[in-house]
């Protein structure tokens, strides 16, 4: 299996991460991570909680010092060239805050003034906060704060924007608004690094995705490419009408795996899976009820590449 595929084309690199490691005490947050992001790309860093995504981007923007490894953003060292870097990089942190008793417009004006060439576009309006312009920050809801934070990360017309969990806590409509905005920002030439644990977000927005699990890069590819790494693999999920021997199914040439989940059975395999399984079960007078059939997604890719479900991974790696 081909891992760590580089960016397409030979354009200049926005981000180079080489062999980056970071531990907190006994916990390994990053374990020899290497990634490259081309200029103009939307690059997703995807993984369960505790996979090291946030640590990776915090190193990237100079908020943390890695234990070892090499980092370059537009050729700059995030620590040594911090101020030069921050003039070109917009950052949205997971828990960022602004003074409670400043109004949205006052915060916006201040962040706008930090940059030489801020956007003319009204990001506050674009993210549906137009009617909150004169509200104090403390009066905003969680989702509104989140959108303001994203807007301020983009206000300086950054060459690179690093957005950590930008749509967490947003309702579906607001999430789609943010995605639309991100596509527009990229169309104007900004490179984006998005940290997310939403599969859908990565599938719909990213050119390439790095899958992180327990501090390691499991795979880097386009969302389709990753799903393609498990291409042909399909799931069949049903409730059997009676007991049967798993060996009946695992003996079939196209079946890879048979799993039980409560009363349900999940069969993974390829080829003419559906017919083979249904006919075999019929042979022992078992019917497949509530049958559903799906093809592989990014979620399956994660399962295949890491050996565990996306949602479970966080529980395993979290102390």
């Amino acid at each position: 299996m081909m891992l760590g595929e580089g960016p397409k084309g030979s354009g200049p690199l926005a981000v180079e991460i080489e062999d980056l490691s970071k531990r907190y005490g006994d916990t390994v947050a990053l374990d020899h991570v290497s990634l490259q992001v081309a200029e103009g790309e939307i690059f997703g860093i995807l993984g369960p909680n505790g996979a090291g995504k946030t640590t990776a981007v915090e190193c990237l923007v100079g908020l943390r010092t890695p234990d070892s490894g090499r980092l370059r953003v537009f050729g700059l060292d995030p620590h040594r060239d911090r101020s030069e870097l921050h003039a070109q990089v917009g950052v949205q942190l997971q828990q960022s805050a602004f003074p409670d008793r400043l109004k949205v417009s006052e915060i916006e004006e201040m962040y706008r003034s930090f940059y030489h060439n801020p956007v003319e576009q009204d990001l506050i309006e674009g993210l549906g906060l137009g009617d909150k312009r004169h509200s104090y920050y403390q009066a905003l809801s969680g989702g509104q704060r989140q959108r303001l934070s994203v807007a301020l990360a983009l206000i300086g017309r950054p060459r690179l924007a690093v957005l950590d969990e930008m749509t967490t806590g947003l309702d579906p409509q607001a999430r789609h608004d943010v995605w639309e905005l991100i596509r527009g920002v990229r169309a104007r030439g900004t490179t984006l690094v998005l940290v997310t644990h939403f599969m859908e977000e990565a599938e719909r927005l990213c050119d390439r995705v790095a899958l992180l699990d327990s501090g390691r890069v499991v795979a880097v590819d386009s969302p389709d490419g990753l799903a393609g790494q498990v291409a042909g693999s399909r799931h069949l999920r049903f409730t059997p009408s009676g007991a049967f021997d798993d060996a009946l199914l695992t003996a079939l040439p196209d079946v890879e795996k048979v799993e039980h989940e409560g009363p349900h059975v999940i069969v993974t395999g390829r080829g003419d899976l559906l017919n083979d399984v249904v006919l075999t079960l019929a042979g022992v007078n078992v019917r497949a009820l509530d049958l559903s059939f799906g093809s592989s997604t990014l979620e399956d890719a994660f399962l295949r590449l890491t050996g565990h479900h996306f949602d479970e991974a966080g529980k395993e790696t979290r102390p």
Partner: peptide, 18 residues
């Protein structure tokens, strides 16, 4: 690409006043 490097990088002085 329409990116220009921020003139003289760093930060505009008006930032202090805002």
């Amino acid at each position: 690409m329409s990116h220009q490097r921020a003139a003289g990088s760093g930060i505009p002085t008006r930032a202090f006043w805002t």
